[in-house]
């Protein structure tokens, strides 16, 4: 049993990691370039999922729902940027945390009022709902493979954008030397808006993609937000490569830990205590990982040079 299970769980871990990357990418950019801690990043993910459900109900087409949800999330994100976040960029990190925490509280309740507290569902698009046989005796849901593939494609696109384009160059420079970049006469406000809008769309994209296999409910962004923070801190704030590697690492460690921790513990202790401590250890595994990484590398795996 255990080899196929291992393969399946590895794929699940990969899928989870890719999802985390989509969310963490925007977070690390916004944090790295703008020095802005945006706790409300997680609600963008939630909003993406809700908007997709709504647009799907209107249009009946997943692709249309995806496009409309991304545009609407972008518009909403820019509205937030324009009305609130803009005033926060040169504020203290703590103030940013509270203000964006306030936005989380508001939006979590807001979606409850608009769409109700009950979980919603988004169907998997036609033709992608089944399973594929990867190996004899090993089937895997197509949609999860689609998530993995789309996440990897986004990662490639991001890599290209950040390393090859002018905006990407500014972003890289901004992550390490924000003051110098603005001193060079670059319109930092516009750069911020582009970065922010892009990050918002990525989070919303993650929300749309996961909606078919996860229930869409208020507060779904909160736990993912904390995980995304764990990812960018392990990766090194402002580092896209770090975010990618850390996201996959966290996705795999968390998923594999949850499915195999009890078995692993049973090697060293009797079954009954293993069953009680196993889940606890599995849940804290990623935090242990983060503490370990920070102990040995206090600025993450790929510290952006020039940041203190």
């Amino acid at each position: 049993m255990s080899f196929t299970l291992l393969l399946i769980q590895t794929l699940n871990g990969l899928q989870f990691g890719v999802l985390l990357f989509l969310i963490a990418a925007g977070l690390t950019l916004v944090f790295g370039v703008m020095d802005f801690i945006n706790l409300a990043h997680g609600v963008q993910y939630m909003l993406g999922a809700y908007l997709a459900v709504m647009f799907y109900a209107w249009t009946g087409s997943f692709v249309l729902a995806l496009i409309l949800a991304l545009l609407a999330a972008l518009a909403f994100g820019l509205l937030l940027e324009f009305t609130v976040f803009r005033q926060l960029y040169d504020r203290d990190h703590l103030e940013q945390v509270i203000a964006t925490f306030g936005i989380i509280i508001f939006l979590n309740q807001g979606v409850k009022v608009v769409w109700g507290a009950a979980p919603l569902n988004l169907p998997i698009p036609d033709g992608l709902a089944g399973v594929v046989t990867l190996m004899p005796g090993l089937t895997y849901p197509v949609w999860r493979l689609v998530i993995i593939a789309s996440g990897l494609i986004v990662a490639l696109i991001l890599y290209f954008l950040v390393s090859q384009t002018r905006v990407g160059m500014l972003v890289r420079a901004g992550a390490t030397h924000a003051r110098i970049v603005s001193a060079l006469g670059v319109d930092i406000r516009r750069l911020f808006m582009i970065v922010f809008g892009f990050g918002t769309m990525l989070a919303a994209f993650a929300g749309v993609m996961i909606a078919p296999i996860l229930s869409v409910e208020p507060g779904m962004g909160d736990s993912v937000l904390i995980l995304a923070f764990v990812v960018i801190v392990i990766g090194g704030i402002g580092s896209m490569r770090g975010a990618f590697i850390a996201a996959l690492l966290i996705g795999l460690v968390d998923t594999l830990g949850r499915s195999f921790m009890i078995d692993i513990l049973r090697l060293v202790m009797p079954p009954s205590p293993a069953r009680t401590v196993g889940p606890a250890i599995a849940s804290m595994l990623i935090y242990v990982l983060m503490a370990l990484v920070l102990y040995f590398r206090p600025a993450g795996l790929f510290p952006a040079k020039g940041r203190s």
Partner: peptide, 16 residues
């Protein structure tokens, strides 16, 4: 019942 709709923005306003 929807007090959080007031509470959230209040935090933002206090910061700003």
């Amino acid at each position: 019942e929807n007090w959080k709709l007031i509470f959230g923005p209040l935090l933002v306003i206090i910061v700003l």
